[in-house]
């Protein structure tokens, strides 16, 4: 539907929707961790790694294919998470959050001082291509959006399927009672490690997508406030469905854009208020409103 409507959507809306896919992917990964009771305050690490992987592909190899960029983002982020996961999978609660925060700030600290990668200014990404073709200027955004939609759909389906497997179903059990998980013969640590890598891959793809959409990357993408944004989207959406993070990201994008246009000095306040209200009144996220209504009229 989106694909068919694509040519008729105004350019600015295409931009917002594509970015919503990018951030939705990151939030989808955070949702997996949140289901196991873990909140990462450093998911920007993988978002930024994905973006820089995509950027490096163009800067050092001249490749600017959207799909190749997303693949590079996924691989780099996934590999980093696989290594760091050996460390992080032991941690729970506040300590998981703080360690992931420290790791993302390490990347920020490295990028800020790296002249080859443009230090605080970052660098521009080559114009996107798709299967070796460079679409005309009016079609570039649409091509990126279409790729984003298809990749997101496939990844969301994969996560949906994963949630139904024994490992996916282990998440709420780890959140509730890790001792019991161990005493039933499963390794909570390994399960968390797997989830952490999946979440990083999703964030890496999201970062690459954001990079090619915006056309520019900078170290801010690894700063803790970026992670805060992703947490906001995840809490807003809730853990009820794999569609929720994308809906959450779109709502966030719309709130952000309109609130920023109306009053640039109070948009954070709107976000803060929304976050507060959701934690207090809708702890299961906005998605739970749909589910409740659905449950009432089966």
């Amino acid at each position: 539907m989106l694909l068919a409507a694509g040519p008729f959507i105004p350019q600015w809306a295409i931009f917002i929707i594509t970015i919503a896919f990018a951030k939705g992917l990151v939030a989808l990964g955070l949702m997996l961790l949140l289901r196991a009771g873990l909140i990462s305050f450093g998911q920007a690490l993988y978002y930024c790694l994905g973006a820089y992987a995509a950027g490096a592909l163009g800067r050092f190899m001249g490749i600017s294919d959207v799909l190749a960029q997303m693949l590079a983002g996924a691989l780099v982020a996934g590999f980093a998470a696989f290594i760091l996961g050996f460390l992080l999978a032991k941690y729970r609660g506040i300590f998981f959050g703080l360690l992931s925060l420290a790791l993302s700030m390490i990347l920020y600290g490295l990028l800020v001082k790296n002249e080859a990668l443009g230090s605080t200014d970052g660098f521009n990404i080559l114009p996107s291509t798709l299967f070796g073709v460079r679409p005309g200027p009016e079609w570039v955004r649409y091509a990126v959006l279409a790729s984003a939609a298809i990749v997101s759909l496939l990844l969301a389906l994969a996560v949906h399927r994963y949630l139904a497997t024994p490992l996916g179903r282990l998440a709420p059990a780890i959140k509730d009672n890790e001792i019991r998980v161990e005493y039933m013969g499963a390794s909570a640590r390994r399960a968390v490690h797997v989830k952490y890598v999946i979440a990083a891959v999703l964030a890496g793809v999201g970062g690459a997508l954001a990079a090619t959409t915006v056309g520019h990357i900078d170290p801010e993408m690894a700063f803790w406030t970026t992670s805060g944004e992703f947490i906001f989207i995840t809490i807003l959406a809730g853990t009820g469905s794999v569609v929720a993070p994308f809906a959450g990201a779109l709502i966030y994008g719309v709130i952000h854009t309109t609130a920023y246009d109306l009053s640039p000095n109070t948009w954070q306040m709107s976000l803060g208020l929304a976050l507060l209200l959701i934690i207090v009144f809708l702890p299961e996220g906005l998605w739970s409103m749909f589910r409740r209504r659905y449950a009432r009229h089966p």
Binding site: G93, T266, M269, G272, L276, I279
Partner: peptide, 19 residues
């Protein structure tokens, strides 16, 4: 939960930034 309270203080932080 500790982590949820952290998020609440984060929400308050965002609000105070704009205040």
């Amino acid at each position: 939960d500790e982590v949820v309270i952290l998020l609440i203080t984060y929400a308050l932080f965002l609000i105070l930034e704009d205040v």
